[in-house]
């Protein structure tokens, strides 16, 4: 079981290392979307600090969606997805492994670049710390829920746009709790409540999403 999970992880990480373009594009997308907001709204530091948490969180959800449409699509095209589903291990583990790999490849770089963007938005140091923490808890949710959408839209025309339509509403709680945590620090009301709720949502997602995604994957492969 562990060997299977490690094999999936190792493979996806190796592939990402050989195709650096993919995750770099998602990362630059995140940076650019976030950088467009000051240009559209104006450079007022107070205003930017006010909208910063929300903008960065929305940009993170969009960046994760950008890459999610390919979570299973590439493996579907060359037939390796069928081999993985036909392995003796349960498909839930496969989905879990691929979601985890997605988070490591696309989520972690967002985390690393987020402080720089936080500075761009004039967020104070403690708020940046909480932003990182909220992204650390929140981005796995994006990968897990996105796995459901990627499995449902596998092989469909315009799957990428459809995926966005299906999954964005499900991201709402993560967005609210995540951005709210940073807002809480800025407003001086503390971030603990938001972060605990975000953590609870992560646990629930971890318990539910892989099963639904595994079922969806089987449906899509039929």
């Amino acid at each position: 079981m562990t060997r299977f999970l490690l094999a999936v992880l190792r493979r996806d990480l190796t592939l990402a290392a050989r195709r650096r373009g993919d995750w770099l594009i998602a990362l630059f997308f995140f940076v650019m979307v976030a950088s467009l907001f000051p240009l559209g709204i104006g450079p007022d530091p107070k205003l930017l600090a006010r909208i910063g948490p929300g903008v960065l969180w929305v940009a993170a959800t969009l960046a994760s969606l950008l890459s999610l449409s390919r979570l299973f699509a590439d493996d579907h095209r060359d037939g390796s997805l069928e081999h993985m589903v036909l392995s003796p291990e349960p498909t839930v583990l496969l989905v879990l492994g691929k979601s985890l790999a997605h988070w490591l490849i696309y989520g972690i770089p967002l985390l690393l670049i987020a402080p720089v963007l936080g500075v761009q938005f004039h967020l104070p140091a403690d708020a940046i710390g909480v932003l990182l923490l909220s992204l650390l808890i929140g981005t796995p949710i994006l990968s897990l829920l996105g796995g459901v959408g990627a499995a449902l839209t596998l092989g469909l025309r315009g799957g990428g746009v459809l995926l966005t339509l299906l999954i964005l509403p499900l991201y709402v709680p993560a967005l609210i709790f995540g951005a709210g945590a940073v807002d809480g620090v800025l407003a001086g009301t503390g971030a603990e409540a938001h972060l605990s709720l975000l953590g609870a949502f992560l646990i629930l997602t971890l318990l539910v999403a892989p099963w639904i995604a595994a079922a969806a994957l089987k449906v899509s492969l039929e």
């Binding site: 079981m1 060997r3 299977f4 490690l6 094999a7 999936v8 190792r10 493979r11 190796t14 592939l15 050989r18 195709r19 095209r77 060359d78 037939g79 390796s80 069928e82 081999h83 993985m84 036909l86 392995s87 003796p88 291990e89």
Partner: peptide, 30 residues
């Protein structure tokens, strides 16, 4: 059971050995 379909199920970015290593990992074998 082992299945070989129209598509080969091997990754273009990996070399043959790496592909086989992953196939073994899928079966939970060393």
């Amino acid at each position: 059971m082992a299945y070989l379909g129209h598509a080969n199920g091997i990754k273009d970015e990996l070399n043959p050995l790496e592909n086989l290593r992953f196939a073994d990992g899928l079966q939970g074998r060393a």
